[in-house]
């Protein structure tokens, strides 16, 4: 009986000592972190958009947003060749674009390669409310015209403000008019070509008929001769 009580007494005191010891150990670590630099970024005060800007208001070890941060999308319409690959790559269909013909120009992409541009976008819309910032649309874009910016603050009070349009109404009118003009020209050219081709075909036919006619009697002659 007495043995058991001494044993349990020992355990009790052991636990007590251990408990106090570990509490002190934990406290020492907690106290030590009082003297380290705070890691927390005071976000609205510290501009976190780049490594340089973050340094003004923040002295901690974390860094600002990297240049390849996948934020809100932007499109550089001057180098977009309207290839619609980005629209096809997006898994949730949040890019919508319509294309029309334009004057043939050569654009220089972000990576320095030249691309031929024969069509242009009359509508280019991205629904940022739906976009999941996955970056899949930027991969197939050859000139690099669709790209992520490091903007991420875009709170609005209505959903339709989240639909970004990269072609404004005025230029859309012009683009459409130009497209129609070019279409008309192309149509006229096509017709001309068609007419030319028809004429040629007719002529050829006539010629062949003539030769046939010329030949026919001769063949009959030949036959007669035989």
């Amino acid at each position: 009986m007495s043995e058991i009580t001494t044993q349990s007494k020992d355990r009790y005191f052991n636990n007590l000592v251990n408990g106090v010891k570990t509490v002190f150990e934990g406290m020492s670590i907690t106290l030590a972190s009082f003297f380290t630099r705070p890691v927390t970024v005071q976000y609205p005060e510290a501009d976190i958009s780049t490594d340089q800007t973050i340094q003004d208001n923040y002295k901690g070890p974390l860094s600002g947003m990297p240049p390849n941060y996948r934020g809100i999308l932007n499109v550089d319409m001057s180098i977009c060749t309207a290839c619609t690959l980005c629209m096809k790559a997006c898994p949730i269909d949040c890019i919508y674009l319509e294309t029309v013909k334009c004057e043939k120009v050569t654009v220089i992409g972000k990576d320095g390669n030249e691309e031929n541009k024969v069509r242009t976008c009359s509508i280019f819309k991205i629904d940022i409310g739906k976009c999941m910032f996955c970056g899949l649309c930027t991969i197939p874009c050859k000139p690099g015209s669709i790209y992520h910016t490091n903007r991420f603050e875009m709170n609005t009070q209505s959903l339709d403000k989240l639909v970004l349009s990269f072609v404004d109404d005025d230029s859309r009118q012009q683009i459409l008019l130009k497209g129609m003009e070019l279409d008309a020209i192309a149509e006229a050219k096509k017709k001309e070509k068609q007419a030319l081709a028809d004429k040629k075909a007719a002529e050829e036919q006539a010629v062949s008929k003539k030769t046939d006619k010329e030949k026919e009697p001769s063949t009959t002659d030949d036959k007669d001769n035989q």
Binding site: L62, S63, M65, P66, Y69, R70, M132, F133, G135, L136
Partner: peptide, 14 residues
């Protein structure tokens, strides 16, 4: 922070 530098996102890396 490290992974953000690699791929541009902090949680849904893709």
């Amino acid at each position: 922070d490290l992974l953000e530098r690699v791929c541009g996102a902090r949680l849904t890396y893709n």
